[in-house]
Simulated scan of single mutants.
Amino acid sequence: MKNILILGGTGKTGSRIARRLKAAGRPVRTASRTSADIPFDLDNPSTWEHALAGVTAAYLVEPNLRMSKDRQARIPQFVTEAVTAGVRRLVLLSAPRAGETAHPLHAAEQAVRGSGVDWAILRPNWFSQNFSEGPWLPGILAGTLALPTGGGRTPFVDAEDIAEVAASALTEDRHSGHTYELTGPRAIGFGEAAHLIAEATGRTIRHTDIDPDVFVQRQVAAGVSSDVARLLADVLAAIGDGSGAALSDGVERALGRPPRAFEDFVAQAAAAGHWT
């Protein structure tokens, strides 16, 4: 693929994909609302044509899974325009269980599969980087990670692994038609995750299980809408109920090596000063 478009090019996965491709000498165009090579907004189709000009491969990201039915049509509509513009390979960042009809990304997956061009779909588990760059960072910095997850375990996946799989899928034919479920090498609990980060940083950090309703109240007080807060609480509570602990071989199938361990992520994030 000659020219590669990265939607969400300043985000957790997009920035890492762009960095890998640029290091390999690939022509990359990052697209985002701000700070990218080109301004882009999925809600504003007038920004699409310029982003797609001359592009032959594209990485697709839906930035908001908590969206209305109307907004769930954004990626399918973009896929249609991308193929018309000459894109011949699509790589979609999806999510576990997106094959189910009720999932917000189901229509996006169907559009990519039915696009008539090469495609690959990535379904990563919870990102390890949620502890260092995302929604759980404030709790880590405060010393208490209060989430309604109980003693549930999940195989956090490193965003570096996701980016490496995506970069390979954007540039190599062998991934065409594959759906990769991406997880880390073992499932761990939030208590163990907090302990590992505490050991690496020398700080006191603990995980506290809270009632989902309390979690919702705190999220709403912080400015999150009640429906979004409830959805997030339900997803987290499902971890405590044993959902999402299964391992997948997607990273190894895609890259020929095992996924990075959570301990490796912690060591790198600590060295980079994410928790100082």
Rank of each mutant, 00 (worst) to 15 (best):
G189I: 00
D43L: 14
L42K: 07
V83R: 11
A193D: 07
E100G: 00
Q217T: 12
H106P: 03
I121A: 00
H50I: 09
I140E: 04
K22Q: 15
P27T: 10
F156N: 01
A73Y: 03
I38D: 07
W136Y: 11
F131D: 08
A198H: 09
P185R: 13
R186Y: 09
L232N: 06
A51E: 07
R230Y: 06
G134K: 05
V83T: 04
V83I: 12
S225E: 15
G177N: 07
G114E: 13
S226V: 12
S176Y: 12
R123Q: 08
S176R: 13
S15R: 13
A194G: 08
G143S: 04
Q110E: 06
P124K: 02
G273R: 10
A193C: 06
V112M: 00
L247F: 08
S168V: 05
A221W: 04
A270L: 08
H195V: 12
K22E: 14
L42H: 05
G184R: 01
N64D: 13
T34H: 15
A271E: 13
G242H: 11
R230Q: 11
T201F: 07
Y59D: 02
E263H: 06
A146D: 09
V91P: 02
P185Y: 12
L147K: 04
G191L: 05
A200P: 07
W119R: 00
A24G: 05
H207C: 08
E263L: 06
V266C: 02
A194H: 11
G191S: 11
H50K: 15
T201P: 02
P212W: 02
Q129W: 07
T13E: 11
F262S: 03
L141P: 03
R29K: 11
A246W: 05
A82C: 12
S35E: 10
A51C: 13
L122E: 05
T47R: 11
S15Y: 08
R230F: 04
T80F: 07
A82V: 05
V214I: 13
A233R: 01
I210Y: 03
S35H: 14
T144D: 15
A270F: 10
P135H: 14
A166K: 01
A102D: 14
D227Q: 15
L247R: 01
K12Q: 15
P138F: 06
D211C: 07
R203Q: 06
P27K: 14
D213R: 13
A24M: 09
A261F: 10
P104Q: 03
S68Y: 04
F40H: 07
N125E: 12
T101E: 15
P185M: 10
P124C: 01
T56K: 09
P27N: 12
